[in-house]
């Protein structure tokens, strides 16, 4: 996934920039840094929307970007959380970040929740256990479906009584392990994993596809009356659909208009069964072209991912 790679690269860029700012002082505008900055800048625009900038990519159950958890503890937590999801379908994800860069932990947390969509769709059973190292802030973000079991109060107590004392002693591994167990205990049994869950939410056809189908039938119908009518309908309909669903530039619209004109005149002719079967094959790739143009807002990579859970800002924050 190029977007993920870019985000990683960009995160690294930000870190390097910070180092430079700290160490170089006034030499901020030296040329290598400028290049680094430009790459970061490009990554910003390519990284799929404004929110993706700050939210690090989801790697697994434990996303330790601040290097607070030892490797051994990490694999233990991964196994525990994986088993928990298998039995209860509830997703619990840990994220540590080096710094919040001036943002509130609540604001950042909801952005992560919106980007990662932890939890199953419709059940909204996701939990994000977020820790900001420099600010010494902890947040437990609770998905809507778990707000009844894991209330703000319970989350607050887990932070205050379980996580905080261990973090204060510098025992981060113990804090994460104990906090995770407490969260699992609090939410166990609220949901049950189904025997065989449908793999992915099947997204319905885009409106464009429906419209194109309609337009195609309309063109056939009109074109069978008269070629002029078919041509006009094609010339207006095709750019119309493109405008409504894609919103492209004027030039594209004009070109699509011409294409639509041609299709409106020729389509009924091709379907009239006069042995021009090969021609029909020629026009369908056109539909394929529009299809690929319309999609592309899915950001679910392979492997681990959120299931589309919704968050409404429930949970609690604390510091140590």
């Amino acid at each position: 996934m190029p977007a993920v790679d870019l985000a990683v690269e960009q995160d690294m860029t930000i870190d390097r920039m910070k180092d430079h700012e700290l160490h170089c002082g006034l030499r901020v505008f030296s040329s290598p840094l400028l290049i680094v900055f430009l790459i970061g800048f490009l990554a910003f625009f390519l990284a799929d929307g404004a929110h993706a900038l700050d939210v690090p990519p989801l790697k697994g159950y434990v996303n330790d970007y601040a290097n607070m958890i030892s490797r051994q503890t990490q694999s233990r937590l991964e196994a525990e959380l994986k088993a928990f999801e298998r039995t209860d379908s509830t997703q619990l994800v840990i994220l540590t970040v080096p710094s919040l860069d001036g943002e509130t932990i609540e604001g950042f947390s909801i952005k992560v929740a919106e980007a990662w969509k932890i939890g199953q769709k419709g059940r909204d059973n996701g939990i994000i256990f977020l820790v900001a190292a420099r600010e010494k802030r902890i947040r437990i973000e609770v998905g809507r479906g778990l707000e009844g079991r894991l209330t703000d109060l319970t989350a607050g107590r887990i932070i205050d009584l379980v996580v905080k004392p261990r973090f204060k002693r510098g025992d981060f591994n113990g804090g994460f392990v104990a906090g995770t167990s407490a969260l699992i205990d609090a939410t166990k049994g609220e949901f049950k994993a189904e025997e065989a869950r449908p793999a992915r939410k099947g997204r319905s056809f885009s409106p464009m596809l429906t419209l194109l189908l309609f337009a195609g039938i309309g063109l056939l119908f009109l074109g069978s009356f008269s070629r002029v009518a078919g041509g006009i309908a094609g010339a207006i309909g095709l750019p119309g659909i493109a405008f409504l669903t894609l919103g492209p530039s004027m030039i594209t619209l004009v070109l699509l208009g011409l294409l639509g004109l041609a299709m409106g005149i020729l389509l009924p002719f091709l379907f009239s069964g006069t042995g021009h079967g090969r021609g029909g094959g020629m026009f369908f790739p056109g539909g394929g072209f529009f299809g690929t143009g319309g999609g592309g807002d899915f950001n679910s990579g392979g492997g681990f991912g959120g299931g589309g859970g919704d968050f409404g800002g429930g949970g609690a924050s604390g510091d140590w």
Binding site: E106, I110, T151, D152, L153, A155, G156, R157, F311, G312, G313, G314, G315, A316, S317
Partner: peptide, 12 residues
């Protein structure tokens, strides 16, 4: 704690 959570919900 509850108030804090509620204020956050309001914000969201």
């Amino acid at each position: 704690v509850q108030l804090e959570g509620t204020e956050n919900r309001i914000n969201v």
